[in-house]
């Protein structure tokens, strides 16, 4: 389980997160929603080791994950797909995928994972030798997710996978995220602007506002909460 207590993060003089505490059970999908600048991306970047925390604690299982480097946290099963279709455009689709499993140094497991990814996203299979910058937005997001799966994660941190995608593609990606969570027993933190879409597939919801938790609860309850609807869902 992921347990976060009193997490506080500063960007220079600006406090991005103020004492955030919550926990997510193993196998749960948590949607983190909120306006721009609410601290959603900072939360993910801190959990994956890209940003430094000023105060607080974060534990994944028994492991204290603050103050570790991202490349080390990957080895503890934490995989972060950063914002904006995090693929390397100059590399081929196949190389982008392989990148995710390099640290495991096990080519047999790696090709097994690759097979799984290609079953999940068959379109990537048709484009293995193409450069990633030739892919559509949706395909790039699939590739980013695929690379993350290649690293055999247990905790998946996803930053706005729906960004800039067409509604139909968003639906596909969200469905894939839900299926993965269930099928592999992953724990997922899904940061989204698309609050409605995210709450639909999530188990729990966390609403961030100006760096603090404004509401937390089951995704279904949040979706129907009039205050949350008015402030964050836009109706």
């Amino acid at each position: 389980m992921l347990r976060i207590e009193n997490l506080t993060v500063d960007h220079g003089a600006i406090r991005a997160l103020h004492g955030v505490s919550f926990s997510v059970e193993k196998g749960q999908l948590a949607a983190v929603i909120g306006a721009n600048g609410a601290g959603k991306t900072t939360l993910l970047r801190t959990l994956s080791g890209l940003n430094k925390a000023s105060e607080g604690q974060a534990h994944w299982g028994d492991h204290n994950i603050l103050h570790s480097k991202p490349e080390k946290l990957v080895r503890h099963g934490i995989s972060h797909v950063s914002e904006g279709k995090s693929v390397i455009p100059e590399l081929t689709v196949s190389e982008n995928l392989e990148l995710g499993s390099l640290w495991r140094r096990n080519s047999k497991e790696s090709s097994q994972s690759k097979k799984e990814v290609l079953e999940l996203f068959p379109r990537l299979g048709e484009r293995l030798s193409q450069r990633a910058d030739s892919l559509s937005g949706g395909e790039r997001q699939m590739l980013a997710l695929g690379r993350s799966i290649m690293s055999k994660p247990e905790l998946l941190l996803l930053d706005e996978p729906s960004l800039g995608l067409a509604p139909l593609v968003i639906e596909q990606i969200f469905q894939a995220i839900r299926d993965l969570t269930t099928a592999k027993g992953l724990t997922v933190i899904l940061v989204e602007q698309n609050a409605m879409g995210a709450l639909k597939i999530a188990d729990i919801g966390i609403v961030l506002n100006l760096g603090s938790i404004a509401a937390i609860g089951s995704a279904a309850a949040l979706k129907d909460d009039p205050a949350v609807r008015a402030a964050y869902l836009g109706f």
Binding site: S48, L50, P70, R75, R105
Partner: peptide, 24 residues
């Protein structure tokens, strides 16, 4: 080689490479 892939990935996109577990 895997080393070559790591070298290229780290030069193009160090942050993504680190998130993929490469010791950049």
């Amino acid at each position: 080689t895997n080393l070559g892939l790591s070298l290229r990935a780290s030069s193009f996109a160090p942050e993504i490479s680190r998130l993929a577990g490469i010791r950049v």
